[in-house]
Design a protein around this nucleic acid. Sequence first.
DNA 1: ACTTTGGCTTTAC
DNA 2: TGTAAAGCCAAAG
Length: 139
Amino acid sequence: MDSAEFHAAVYHVVRRIPYQRVTSYGHIAKLIGMPNYSRLVGQALKFLSRDVEPPVPWQRVISSAGTISSRGPGTNGAQIQREALEAEGVEVVVGRTGEFRVDLARWGWFPAPGTVDIGLSLTPAGAPGTTDGAGVDVT
DNA sequence: ACTTTGGCTTTAC
DNA sequence: TGTAAAGCCAAAG
């Protein structure tokens, strides 16, 4: 797939992230079938224009450690992201060094690869397993 | 064409 | 958890 398809797949998957759920860049890469493209997922979201037709909930994508990427001191992207997450009810805590983090055990959404539609032909036909992908139910 | 730079990950300590 | 180091891949410089 070329970069256009990659972007499309990323957006597609990100849009599949349920309300009040978050996932990681790396997991999205896995879902698409390219485990080592985690950084490119970040770029795809970075290149995303802010007024695409079906909005892409990019705020539901954070690092695998459950922290919101700061994107540098001069930017307020992390703050925006935090507000967006809290706005939909996701609990965001502030670390001791001031970073925002989300409890992945509670809000994380990590369905097995192949169980979500990525909008491309590589989705296996009768994908077994969870179609819900309700991550961890530790309550 | 080479070097840096990212909304990253994993493994190891 | 928190760093540190080594991979990773495309876009900028």
